[in-house]
Write a protein that binds this DNA or RNA. Structure first.
Lengths: 146, 146
DNA sequence: TTCCTTGCAAACGATTTGCATTGGA
DNA sequence: TCCAATGCAAATCGTTTGCAAGGAA
């Protein structure tokens, strides 16, 4: 998705909720769209060159999360990372490097995702659980830390 | 696994690393073995009736994690939960209730786990990643919050 | 004008650490 | 005995909030 298309998509979503799409919010969405994986507030702060102070950044993240534009990711001790929601960025899973800590997205080919879905349904059935979503994370060493 | 067997298993592991298996550490391991899902430091603090002060509890958790007895779980904003490592408690996955926030373990039947493993290998291959472990979490509503 | 958003500084909660004391092999 | 483990209090760090100022509709 190009940045301008992304911007329009997000803009539409926010307008539908009566939420302004301000420059700080645009900056965060743009920064996330550039990233290869979820970003923490601190990382985004750097990415936007300090243009948005941390407190505003956190507020921005919360607004975008409530609007369903972003999704939080709790993959490491003590920091929450955010990424664009699946309906925007597409459904995907993560690989987490146990050495450098980096989190990267994996776009899952349909035939594999179908198998994940089957397993999820089967497992949820075992514990009388109504599955709404799922996350699969693979820990290991990334190609740089091999 | 009975508590005494568990205790012996953990004791052996710690001794092998020259680490003492003190009463505080025993209390934490016992509390976790009673739990149906991962516990935060605060939850464990309550579970042991305040017998281990929080600072010591955190140190205990770190020691046991480094020894490979516990594994951290980052499933919710701002708290880290711990559980017994897979080699002790058996490999399993989690269901997270989006309503009450509870995390529960699912023991995965072998045939399903095999399928998860295949998908993990396939995905890791796509991004030149050496998989060491994986976690599958299912979000949804538990039977109580249906 | 009116309500939403922002920036700054102070507040918070989870976790860590310094230091003196205690306890187990 | 002697070093690791503990307890307490203070320090950190990520995150949130109160409040006054700035901006868009």
């Amino acid at each position: 998705m190009t940045t301008s298309t992304l911007d329009q998509t997000v803009a539409a979503r926010l307008e539908a909720g009566g939420i302004r799409y301000t420059s700080a919010r645009r900056a965060v969405v743009a920064a996330l769209s550039r990233s290869v994986g979820p970003c923490s507030a601190a990382e985004l702060y750097d990415e936007v060159g300090g243009a948005v102070p941390l407190s505003s950044l956190y507020r921005t993240l919360n607004v975008l999360e409530e609007a369903g534009v972003l999704v939080p990711h709790f993959g490491a001790r003590s920091v929450t990372r955010y990424e664009l929601a699946d309906w925007i960025a597409g459904h995907h899973h993560h690989v987490v490097c146990t050495v450098c800590g980096r989190v990267e997205d994996i776009d899952v080919p349909e035939h594999l995702e179908a198998r994940v879905g089957e397993v999820v349904e089967a497992l949820a059935g075992l514990v009388a659980f109504s599955p709404e979503d799922h996350t699969l994370e693979i820990e290991g060493r990334c190609s740089s830390c091999r």
